[in-house]
């Protein structure tokens, strides 16, 4: 009988985040009128199609860099600059493809610069990406002189003709990242380098390249989020991404990302992103004004840290119990 109990515990531990998501969903469904109900699914469909894709992408970018044991605090700025550059190209050429390519290239370039500063120069990831955040944020303000760009309807039409396109694109990017980092040798190498950089280097892995690629991937993901965001918003603003870094970080942590390299799971981005959007939306339905969202996000980070520790302890206990039985 005890064996079964242990199985149940380990199952709960493994799926704890999904359980939290389901619980949150149930609580909001039961205690609020308009969150979700039979014949009243428009709110949930809305958040799934309109806000969840961005949270998922943000968390994904952050998690990829966290696999290498780093962090990317320039995600917000990267979203701003890639979307703004895209909007500028759209304004001057009117060619949507040119705009998209420009945006993606800008995002990847900034990621590569981050990667080079971290891998080759040896700056701590935090310092490199946080300075980059300020430089890029300021650069966009200089370029734009504080103004915004709008009026790119042709570009918006590409994404807005079908409502599900945001979700589809973000899920596609997520699956691509999952495949790359969970199913290929490249992914295994990245986890190896993240877990133990010097061992990775000694066993012949080009760890510098791996780190640079991780930051480039994060830049790419940020750029995708930025491109989608201006399509949704209809305007590119120089302060667009300012709060996104925090959101990315919160979603990644909720999704189970760990600062110790080589531990975070890519699919955590999906769960983390969903929990954040459900929480934000549900709080509004309960009657908490949207202005408290930032505070809730901070609180959620602290609570997530606590739960993480609790889970680890439970897991250890569970393992111990299993070992004693097998003896």
């Amino acid at each position: 009988m005890g064996f079964e109990k242990n199985n149940v515990i380990s199952f709960i531990i493994k799926g704890s985040r999904v359980i939290v998501l389901v619980l949150l969903f149930l609580v909001f469904t039961i205690f609020t009128k308009n969150f979700f109900g039979v014949g009243n699914s428009s709110n949930v469909v809305n958040i799934l199609l309109q806000t969840a894709p961005f949270e998922i992408l943000l968390a994904l970018g952050m998690i990829i860099t966290m696999i290498t044991g780093g962090i990317d605090l320039s995600i917000g700025a990267n979203i701003t600059i890639s979307s703004f550059m895209c909007a500028m190209v759209l304004q001057y050429t009117g060619n949507s493809l040119a705009g998209i390519v420009t945006g993606l290239l800008v995002g990847i370039t900034i990621g590569i610069i981050n990667g080079i500063l971290i891998a080759f120069v040896g700056l701590p990831p935090f310092v490199a990406t946080y300075s980059m955040d300020w430089i890029v944020k300021g650069a966009v303000l200089v370029i734009s002189q504080g103004g915004q760009i709008n009026g790119f309807d042709k570009y918006r039409a590409i994404f807005n003709t079908w409502r599900g396109s945001y979700l589809l694109i973000s899920i596609a990017v997520l699956i691509l990242a999952w495949f790359l980092y969970s199913k290929t040798t490249f992914g295994k190498k990245t986890y190896f380098v993240g877990a133990n950089p010097s061992a990775g280097e000694l066993s012949g892995i080009n760890s510098k390249l791996i780190v640079i690629l991780a930051y480039a991937a994060c830049g790419f993901v940020a750029a995708v989020a930025g491109l989608l965001y201006i399509a949704k918003l209809g305007a590119a603003e120089p302060t667009l991404g300012n709060s996104f870094t925090m959101a990315a970080f919160a979603a990644a942590l909720i999704g189970g990302a760990s600062f110790a390299g080589g531990k975070s799971r890519v699919l955590g981005a999906l769960v983390g992103g969903l929990i954040i959007v459900v929480l934000n939306n549900g709080l509004i339905h309960i009657g908490v004004p949207g202005i408290w969202q930032d505070f809730a996000q901070g609180l959620v980070i602290i609570v997530a840290v606590f739960l993480e520790r609790l889970m680890e302890k439970l897991q250890e206990k569970n393992k111990k119990g299993n070992n004693e039985k097998s003896l």
Partner: peptide, 16 residues
Amino acid sequence: LVTFGTMSMGFGLAKG
């Protein structure tokens, strides 16, 4: 984690 969390709590609380 902790200081990032308290940072956004501080800003968020002020906003609230």
